[in-house]
Simulated assay, not measured.
Amino acid sequence: MTDDPTSPGPGSHAAPQRFGLRLTEALGRHGPVCVGLDPHRELMQDWGLPDTAAGVAEFCSVVLDAAAGRCAAVKPQSAFFERHGAAGVAVLEDVLRGCRDRGLLTVLDVKRGDIGSTMAGYAQAYLDDDAPLAADAVTLSPYLGYGALRPALDLARSTGRGVFVLVRTSNPEGGQVQSAGRPSVAQQLLQEVGADNAGQAPCGDVGVVVGATLDPAAEGLDLAGSLAPVLAPGVGAQGADEHDVVRAFGGAAGRVLVPVSRGVLREGPEGVASALERWTRRLAGALGDG
């Protein structure tokens, strides 16, 4: 068996299953929770672990064991691994491999965005079958132009992977750029995403990042029509809850992935599993009722 579940088996020439379909299946089995892996310095101290690559590896092992079978996906924040240099990146490689071994989808939060051969290099780093840092999906920044993301979009499609494009983020500063213009930058980006997802019902492979603290409909964002999977940060520490998720994303309920980091990780190593179960009940119940 190959190390990467998106790759065809030995002697097989079958195309890999699309990310959007794999995500839909995972959401149906486990609900919308995506546990964020954010091993920052303060959290490591709270867990009683050294703020080193070895400490991060121990932290991640505990969280992944708790996440297996309890949530749809894991979202490692690359910055918290990169700050430990080569040793930290090696831990990230192990984390991505560990997720595959446990049947967990990965959304690698790298927010890359560039042009030409540099964008192609980022794509090869995270979306190529043979890449040590290959993930099921990555986050991308489109603010050098959506078309500049094409190397990543094309490689993701050919390898059965996905991307999540920053469209309308949960941080207060985001609106200055993302809501500018008529139509807004966010609306134009969503139109581009929808064009790439055309014909990929029930769920496309090009997703969007839209904050759960916002009101997408009030901003003219047609999430349902875009067929885009939605990565919806802002739940928990940023103030949004399951009712905000339903209000914002009820029309795309089967395609919503909700990252929860601090609300789970602050429970410590003994409480991660039960915290994941609580958030899954809250979010899945609310979206089901919505």
Rank of each mutant, 00 (worst) to 15 (best):
Q187P: 08
R161K: 13
S158Y: 00
E82C: 01
V165E: 05
S158W: 00
L96P: 11
Q124N: 09
Y122S: 07
T169G: 05
D114Q: 09
R150E: 15
L190S: 13
T52C: 07
L166E: 12
A134T: 15
L190C: 07
A86G: 00
E192N: 08
P151M: 08
P172N: 09
N171A: 12
L96C: 09
G181R: 13
A125P: 02
R168C: 00
G103T: 10
A156T: 06
L105K: 04
R83I: 13
D94Q: 15
G55F: 12
E173A: 15
G85W: 09
A148M: 14
L155E: 09
V110N: 07
V89K: 07
A152K: 01
L155S: 06
T106P: 08
Q178A: 12
G69P: 14
G88C: 05
S61A: 15
M119Q: 15
A137P: 08
P172L: 09
D51K: 03
A66F: 01
A68Y: 01
A87I: 01
V74T: 06
T159F: 11
Q188N: 14
A152E: 03
G162Y: 05
V167H: 08
Q188Y: 00
G175K: 03
S117D: 13
R161G: 04
C71W: 04
G88Q: 04
D114V: 10
Y146W: 13
A68S: 14
T159A: 08
F164I: 04
L153P: 10
Y122K: 10
K75R: 10
G55K: 08
N171V: 13
L64N: 06
S184R: 11
A73P: 05
Q77E: 15
V138L: 11
A68G: 07
P76D: 07
G88F: 09
D128S: 15
C99R: 09
L140E: 02
